[in-house]
Design a protein around this nucleic acid. Structure first.
Length: 601
RNA sequence: GCCGGCGUAGCUCAGUGGUAGAGCAGCGCACUCGUAAUGCGCAGGUCAUCGGUUCGAGUCCGAUCGCCGGCUCCA
C-alpha cells in the first residue's frame, strides 16, 4: 500500500496505490516466512509451555525463532514441533492484527514471565504496540502477516543451534530453530535438491576428491596441507598475480614469519587484535609473535630509504604468509584457516596521488576478475560509524576526506556499489569485493583500504618539492585474497572444473589397449616437453572406464589413442565438457592447448 | 570461545550390549577391448583417543582431540 508492506485485511481509509504481493516477490516471501516463524513459536509454546520466546524473523532462505527452553532441542523435539506446525496449518485459522496499549502488553508479558519480550518492549517507545493472534496464540510483532495459517503448505525444520540473546556473547545462549516453508511441495523438493547440489560444489568435498589439499588432526587445526595437485594450482595463481603486479609497478619483497611484539604495539594492532595473535614467545630480551599481517613489515621496508616526492608512489607487494589464532569454532575448510598467504601490497603515495592509485587498484581488480571469468560479485564501500567512538579514531575531518575520495573514484569509474556504515577498519574506509561460497555464505575476496593512521604511527615521511618533510598515505590492498580463500572460491566457482590454464592436470592420455602404450608415452612426452601438464593412464582397463575415470577426475582433455591414431600421428580428442571431438594431428592439439592457456581459457 | 550433532577400511556408508560388514578405490590374474563402471580373486580395521560401567562395549557413561551446522569474531 503506497509502497509500504501491510496486511491484506488493512482497511483502505484513503486513496492509495495497492499492489498485491505473492511468494514470487522477495517481500512476499518475507511475509510468508515471518508467518511461518510465528507458527513455529505457536507449536513450541503448545508442546513446551515453559519455553520463553525471543525473536523470530524471516531470513534469505526461510526463517528462525530464538527460544529459551532451559535445555537444547533434541532432533526428536524438532520432529514433534514440525508435526504440530502441520496440524496447526491444516486448521487454517485466521491471523489477525490486534493493537494493545503498551502498559497492558508489559503487564501480560510480566505475568507470563516472557523476559525477552519485555526487554524488546523496553525498546519500543510507542503508546500502542501491535500483536498478531492466530488460534488463541498471540505474539508481539510489527507485521504484516499472511491472512490465514492454512496458506503455509509445506514445512521443514532444518537445524537447531545456539544463538546469543541480542548477538551478545556475554548474554544468555538461546536455542535457535531454523526452518523453511513453501506454498507448494515441488518448491521444497527443489530447495532441498539445491542444498544437495551445493554440497557437491563444496570445496571441502572437491578438495578431498581431487586431492588438492588436506588437513591432518596430528598437524593441528586450521593448518592446511597443499597436496601436489593443489600446490600446482596455487603456483599458477601465484605466478599469475606476481607477474601481473610486476607489470603494474609493484615491487615484490619477502619478510620473515616472526616479528617483535614491539612492531604491533607501534601499529596499534596489539591493542585491537591481541587475542587473535599467537601468544608471544620470549627470546633474549624480546618478545616475538608469529606475524598476523604484513603491513608493518612493508612499512619497515619503506623506511629503509629516505623517500623523495619523485619516488612516490612506492608499491610494496608480497605473498605474505600470516598466522592468526582464529577461534576454533570459526575455522571452515580453506575459507578460514590459521596459516594463510595473502596477495598483499601496500602503496605509499602522496595525498594528490591517492585517487589515481585507488582507481588503478580497482581497475586491476576488474582485469583479474575478467581473467578468472568471475562475474558474480558485489562491491561494498565500508564507511566509519561516527557514533562508534571506541573503535574509530576521532579525526572526523580525515574520515570525511577519505570517504569522499572513494565515493568520487567509484562514481568516476561508473561502478555501482553498496555503502556499509560501520564496516570500515579502525584506520580508514575500504572497498570490498563480496562473493558467495557454495553454501551461500558471503565473504570478502578483494579489498582496497585507505589508511591515514599507520603512516602517522610509524612517522613515515617523504621529502616534498618544497624540501620539507611530508606524510605519505597508505593503501592496503589484496586482489586474489589469501591463496587459501582464493583456492576455495575457485574450486566452488568452477565446481571443480578448472579452466585449462589452471587445471592441475590438463590432459590425460588414454590408450585403447596395451599395444598402444608406446605411442601413448610418445604423446605424453611430446606434450610434457611443450609444458603441458599431462598424465598417462597405464591401467589395464577398458577405454570407457578410463574415460569415466578422467571425467570423474575433472581432467579437461582426454586423448584417446588406438591403432588409427598410432599409425597417423594423431590423437582422438575428448573434451570434459563437449565430449568426443574426433581425431586431429598431435601437433595441432598441442598448438591449440597452448593457445587456450595463453588466452586463459 | 559458546550451543548442538557427528567420528567404523583410502572414500561413501551399514552394523540398537554377545566372533567387525558392503560398495567403490588398492593389489594380483584373465580378457586387449574405440569414448562415463569387464570378470574372478586377494588384501585392507587398536571401530578418533583415553578412562569408566558390564561376565562381555563399535554400541552405554565421562573426558580429550577432530569434523559438521549455527552464534560470536574476522586487522
Amino acid at each position: 500500500m503506497d509502497g509500504e508492506l501491510r496486511d491484506l485485511a488493512t482497511k483502505l481509509d484513503r486513496d492509495a496505490r495497492v499492489e498485491p504481493l505473492t511468494f514470487e516477490q522477495p517481500e512476499g516471501r518475507e511475509v510468508y516466512w515471518h508467518s511461518s516463524a510465528h507458527l513455529l513459536a505457536q507449536a513450541v509454546k503448545q508442546l513446551f509451555p515453559e519455553a520463553k520466546l525471543a525473536i523470530g524473523p524471516p531470513i534469505d532462505d526461510g526463517f528462525y525463532y530464538d527460544i529459551d527452553l532451559g535445555r537444547p532441542f533434541a532432533p526428536e523435539d524438532l520432529e514433534k514441533i514440525e508435526g504440530r506446525m502441520r496440524e496447526l496449518a491444516a486448521r487454517d485459522q485466521p491471523i489477525e492484527r490486534v493493537e494493545v496499549p503498551r502498559d497492558e502488553a508489559i503487564r501480560t508479558y510480566k505475568e507470563m514471565g516472557e523476559k525477552y519480550k519485555l526487554e524488546l518492549l523496553e525498546g519500543i517507545p510507542d503508546p500502542r504496540v501491535s500483536f498478531y493472534r492466530q488460534d488463541g496464540f498471540m505474539d508481539m510483532c510489527r507485521g504484516p502477516h499472511l491472512p490465514r495459517t492454512g496458506l503455509i503448505k509445506t514445512i521443514k525444520l532444518l537445524s537447531t543451534s545456539g544463538a546469543y540473546w541480542r548477538g551478545d556473547e556475554h548474554r544468555e545462549m538461546l536455542q535457535r530453530i531454523y526452518g523453511i516453508s513453501f506454498p507448494r511441495q515441488e518448491q521444497l523438493d527443489e530447495f532441498l535438491r539445491q542444498l544437495e547440489e551445493a554440497k557437491r560444489r563444496d570445496h571441502r568435498r572437491l578438495g578431498k576428491d581431487l586431492k588438492l589439499f588436506a588437513f591432518a588432526e596430528e598437524l593441528g587445526q586450521g593448518l592446511p596441507l597443499w597436496l601436489p595437485r593443489g600446490a600446482t594450482v596455487r603456483r599458477l595463481l601465484e605466478n599469475y598475480i606476481v607477474n601481473l603486479e610486476l607489470q603494474h609497478g609493484y615491487l615484490h619483497v619477502y619478510a620473515p614469519d616472526l616479528a617483535s611484539v614491539q612492531l604491533y604495539k607501534i601499529s596499534g594492532h596489539w591493542d585491537y587484535f591481541r587475542e587473535a595473535m599467537y601468544p608471544p614467545m620470549k627470546v633474549d630480551n624480546d618478545e616475538l609473535v608469529l606475524k598476523p599481517m604484513n603491513c608493518p613489515h612493508h612499512i619497515m621496508i619503506y623506511k629503509q630509504d629516505q623517500r623523495s616526492y619523485r619516488d612516490l608512489p612506492v608499491r610494496i607487494a608480497e605473498l605474505g604468509r600470516m598466522y592468526r589464532y582464529e577461534k576454533s569454532g570459526t575455522l571452515t575448510g580453506l575459507h578460514r584457516v590459521r596459516s594463510m598467504t595473502l596477495n598483499d601490497a601496500h602503496i605509499f603515495c602522496r595525498q594528490d596521488q591517492v585517487k589515481e592509485e585507488f582507481a588503478a587498484v580497482v581497475r586491476l581488480i576488474q582485469q583479474v576478475y575478467q581473467d578468472f571469468r568471475i562475474t558474480d560479485y558485489r562491491l561494498d564501500l565500508s564507511l566509519h560509524d561516527p557514533k562508534d567512538r571506541q573503535y574509530y579514531h576521532q579525526d572526523e575531518e580525515l574520515w570525511m576526506t577519505a570517504e569522499g575520495l572513494l565515493h568520487e573514484v567509484l562514481r568516476e569509474l561508473g561502478l555501482t556499489y553498496n555503502a556499509v556504515v560501520g564496516g570500515a577498519n579502525f584506520y580508514g574506509p575500504k572497498l570490498d569485493v563480496q562473493v558467495r561460497t557454495a553454501t551461500g555464505k558471503e565473504e570478502t575476496l578483494s579489498t582496497v583500504q585507505l589508511d591515514f593512521l599507520l603512516p602517522k604511527r610509524f612517522e613515515l615521511e617523504f621529502i616534498g618539492e618544497d624540501g620539507k618533510s611530508h606524510r605519505p598515505v597508505m593503501i592496503h590492498r589484496a586482489i586474489i585474497s589469501t591463496m587459501e580463500r582464493m583456492m576455495a572460491f575457485l574450486i566452488e566457482y568452477y565446481a571443480g572444473d578448472f579452466p585449462v590454464w589452471l587445471a592441475p592436470e590438463q590432459v590425460r592420455v588414454l590408450p585403447i589397449a596395451d599395444r598402444h602404450l608406446d605411442y601413448a608415452r610418445n604423446v605424453r612426452d611430446r606434450l610434457t616437453a611443450a609444458a603441458v601438464r599431462v598424465e598417462l593412464d597405464t591401467s589395464n582397463e577398458r577405454i570407457s572406464y578410463k574415460v569415466r575415470r578422467a571425467q570423474v577426475d575433472h581432467v579437461p582433455y582426454m586423448l584417446v589413442v588406438g591403432d588409427k591414431e598410432a599409425s597417423s600421428g594423431q590423437v582422438a580428442v575428448r573434451s570434459r565438457g563437449a565430449g568426443d571431438l574426433g581425431p586431429i594431428p598431435l601437433e595441432t592439439f598441442a598448438a591449440r592447448i597452448m593457445e587456450e592457456v595463453a588466452a586463459k581459457q
